[in-house]
Amino acid sequence: MADDGRKALAGRVAIVGAGPAGIAAAHRLLEVASGRVGITLIERSGESEYLPGTVPVVLGEDTSGSFRQPVEIPGVEVLAAEASRVTGSGVVVDGSFVEADYVIAAPGLETEDLSGPPGVHAFWSPSGAEAAAGVVRGAADTIAVVISSLPYRCPPAPYSLAMQLSSLLREAGGRGRVVLTTPEDEPLSALGGGVPEFLRESCERAGVDLHTGFSPDPAALGEGALRSRAGEELAAEVMLVVPPHRRPAALSGLAGEGPLVEVSPHFESSEEGLFVVGDAAAAPFPRAAGPAEAAGKTAADAVLARLGLGEAHRHTPAPECYVGHGGGVFSRISLSYPEGLPPEGTSRVSIEGPSPELARGPEATLERFRQLRSP
């Protein structure tokens, strides 16, 4: 952009990451201040990946390419490059510095490498799931879905994967069985609202052997064994491991415990002018698309308010997750906040299904993913 073009702008905003939070922030900036704010979106490959596609890919129902979309948003400069560091005044990209008045960082959480012997497949994205897709249908004994630690993205997805795997094995006439392990004492206990009981009962009906309070020993996984830190050992021919999630290096040095970054109610980090949204933000919401989108809009409004182009307010998320039970039957878990956002208000949980009619839900969310990232 020419120098005179830069002077006409109220400010420049850099967004890191093309997941739900980053894309929502970009669209909100365009909606409120199109033409008055320069927007640069930085994404490593220039493409966005639809993370819920992980389950259909590992089930062999589709390939990872179906869940990647080039990011092309009119009015947004898309930079396909690696962001190695973010600050409140810009982003270090491939050794250069992209200046900005404010930065909205939505890089998500990275996963640790748990490379192990054959039979151990650690992944939590569609691209990572392809290597495991060829082995699950041929499993003759036990497939284990292993949640290695908390937090992780898409909390209900491992339960959905385990139940659909169990159904797949039954349909194929095999004798294989599915085991699901989680470090939690109850499935998704933080959600409450009957969700733990619902998931436990659903796993039982689907023939999934659920083991709660099971924290796997990483050293044992590296040797091809499924053993908890407490010494409990389970037999498994194939292990599909949700690996530990960690904070991206670009967010190192910011306040917060473990992989999560401490943020204000408007998602500003300990560094002024730097907002962190999405899975890496320490917010009291599930790590799912709905809360990420609301966080992106909230951060965008806070930036617009600083630039004198709007008012800052918190957007209320509408989290919903689809859980597959096998055979084309799905349930939907939804959260709402009728009494206000935490900490003042608490969430209200609703569970719909199981029903074959709800199978249209995942299709609709995938189509929305594609529409938001291209003209």
Rank of each mutant, 00 (worst) to 15 (best):
S48L: 09
P248C: 12
F214E: 02
R175D: 15
V16H: 06
A140K: 13
L307R: 02
V145W: 09
A21K: 05
G192H: 04
L226D: 04
F330V: 11
A249L: 08
L240S: 10
A2W: 01
L274Q: 04
G38W: 00
P156L: 03
L51A: 13
D4Q: 09
P126A: 12
I39D: 04
H245L: 02
L234Y: 11
G253E: 07
S269A: 14
R370I: 00
I42W: 01
A100E: 02
R246Q: 11
V71C: 09
R370E: 00
T346I: 09
V146H: 07
R12D: 08
L114N: 06
E130A: 13
V86R: 05
S355K: 08
A305H: 04
T181L: 03
V55Q: 14
F267R: 11
F198L: 13
G173E: 06
R229N: 03
E130P: 05
D62H: 05
R332N: 11
E130C: 14
T346S: 11
A281C: 10
V146W: 00
D279L: 00
V13E: 09
D101K: 14
P356G: 07
R6E: 03
V329T: 02
S96W: 13
F198Y: 14
V92H: 14
E112D: 07
C154S: 04
C154Q: 01
A2G: 13
G222E: 01
A144Y: 13
A122R: 00
G108A: 15
S89D: 11
R36W: 02
G310W: 08
G128W: 01
A81I: 01
P151D: 06
G53S: 14
L79V: 09
V57K: 00
V145E: 11
G5Q: 06
P342T: 07
F198T: 01
R227T: 07
G75I: 03
V37H: 06
A139G: 14
V276Q: 04
A281W: 14
L188R: 02
A162G: 09
T181D: 02
E31S: 03
R314P: 02
A282M: 12
Y50W: 03
V136D: 10
R205K: 14
A25Q: 01
G19L: 01
P291C: 11
A302Q: 01
G345S: 08
A288L: 15
G65Q: 09
A282E: 05
S34L: 01
E112G: 08
E49A: 15
G46K: 02
A157T: 05
S148T: 14
P187D: 11
R360Q: 15
V208M: 04
E184C: 05
E257R: 13
I351L: 15
E204W: 06
R227W: 06
P118L: 07
A133V: 11
R12Q: 08
P158A: 15
L109S: 00
G128I: 00
G119W: 01
V91N: 05
L251M: 06
A236S: 15
L274H: 10
S167V: 08
V58A: 12
R137L: 04
P218E: 03
S374M: 06
A295E: 14
P74E: 07
S374C: 03
L341A: 12
A299M: 04
S148R: 05
P158L: 02
P354L: 02
A80P: 14
P356A: 15
V323W: 01
A8E: 08
A132W: 08
L168Q: 12
S334I: 02
G278M: 05
E344C: 12
P20Y: 00
V91D: 07
S45R: 07
